[in-house]
Design a protein around this nucleic acid. Structure first.
Lengths: 238, 238
DNA sequence: CGGTAGGTTGACGTCCCTCAAGTATTGTGG
DNA sequence: CCACAATACTTGAGGGACGTCAACCTACCG
């Protein structure tokens, strides 16, 4: 199943692997099961907390979400190339949440138990995980600011911008990007209804901030969107 | 300045200290500057990211918040007994945020530079920090669900509950607790205006979910509040 | 060709904001 | 202890943002 060796891996410089020492790679390969292709809509951690595997996304999009008893859904974060999926399996902590594939996802699959051991014995990798989780926390804080202090339009602009930037990092060029979210996802990310999310997106389109070609790609006027989103970066005092 | 030795410290079993090994305490004491009392309203990290000191709260309340350019404020989290303040100083990461004392705060002050070294050389302490940050992330995810998927009333109920529980842990007895938040803080936590937060709190009072004596203490009907908050814990599939 | 999933639109109701005026409550100096 | 100011909270009226329901429209897929 090892179609590809780690030293050719396209995500070798992402996430926790960035800080891996040369000697760590043998251990990583030992925990590695192989490449898998998860279909669009596939669900990881359907029991909402545990999973026997850890994944590293090679290509495609997924999102982590929680469900309330009455059916309300809150999307916590999006994942793409380089991201680790099912992290709660590693740390044995975190809110109850599942992961769903938004597109078809190519990923590298690891044995969770072995990976846990590798991470404990390899200080560089552990440091990498530490930093990666720190970055996740930072993103989460930003989302908190977006949800709490921004209007729905600002929050949607910020969301589209963040998706756009990650798509860029994954190699897509400026302007037109592959945009995997449906209105339902946008709505459950910023905490409004699908219908109203539709109105806001349409309004952004009328203003010239974005343009949807087919349902899977979007032209993004980044400069304009940045103004709308007010680029939630805070400021000084008091 | 070392009025109190670590082995008598009331927060010895909290946060990152919980997992400290016996040999770690000498190093911790070496990084320790002493006990300080920060007045109500005191601001840490006014430059929004760096601080020469690390603090452990012994008693009192504080909160971490970010400001937007137009003055909007988002409170990210509350801190009390056992919590670490100015963590970004340690990890050199995180969103721009400041910490303000909500009440007078008694805290143990550490030299940030030395503490960083201690944490690197003591694996048990580092593990403790790792777990503490994981818990912070979990809280942040919960807040995200509260802000995104809950109504303002539900979110306020959840906020009051979480403050209540922490007050209990700090030793206050059931029923009446010391409640340090003003309406302004509640509003900027759940992302609504002060006026509307006032209406919702007053309504909770009319329903018998809470009762305010003076402005600093509150009777909390936990069972009822839990119903209102729907206790945001998620569920299974699909 | 019909079925289905996703998107749009309108009407109407509720939640929340804004502005403004008013009333406790707290803090301060005499 | 009081007078006074400052801070915190309350209340009302009118408007805007967002939710709900239902109909309709469009693309895509077998």
């Amino acid at each position: 199943m090892s179609e590809m060796l780690c030293d050719q891996c396209p995500v070798r410089d992402d996430a926790i692997y960035r800080s891996a020492a040369g000697s760590d790679w043998a251990e990583i390969e030992a925990a590695r099961i192989g490449c898998v292709t998860l279909p669009k809509g596939h669900l990881l951690m359907p029991d909402q907390r545990e999973c026997a595997y850890l994944y590293t996304i090679i290509e495609g999009w997924a999102y982590t979400y929680s469900l309330l008893a009455d059916g309300r859904r809150q999307i916590l974060t999006y994942h793409t190339k380089g991201d680790l999926l099912t992290i709660p399996t590693l740390t044995r902590a975190g809110v109850k949440a599942s992961v769903r594939c938004l597109t078809e996802v190519r990923a590298c699959q690891f044995d969770a138990e072995k990976m846990r051991e590798v991470l404990q014995s390899a200080p560089q990798l552990n440091k990498g995980l530490f930093e990666y989780l720190g970055e996740q926390k930072r993103q989460c804080d930003f989302r908190l600011i977006e949800l709490g202090a921004l209007t729905a339009e600002e929050a949607i602009a910020a969301l589209i911008l963040s998706i756009t930037r990650r798509a860029r990092q994954s190699g897509e060029e400026a302007g037109e990007i592959r945009f995997p979210l449906r209105l339902a996802e946008i709505a459950d990310t910023v905490g409004i209804t699908e219908v109203h999310a539709g109105r806001i997106v349409r309004n952004l389109e009328k203003k010239g901030a974005i343009a949807r070609r087919d349902s899977a790609s979007m032209f993004v006027n980044e400069a304009y969107l940045q103004e709308v989103a007010r680029e939630a970066e805070p400021i000084l005092f008091p």
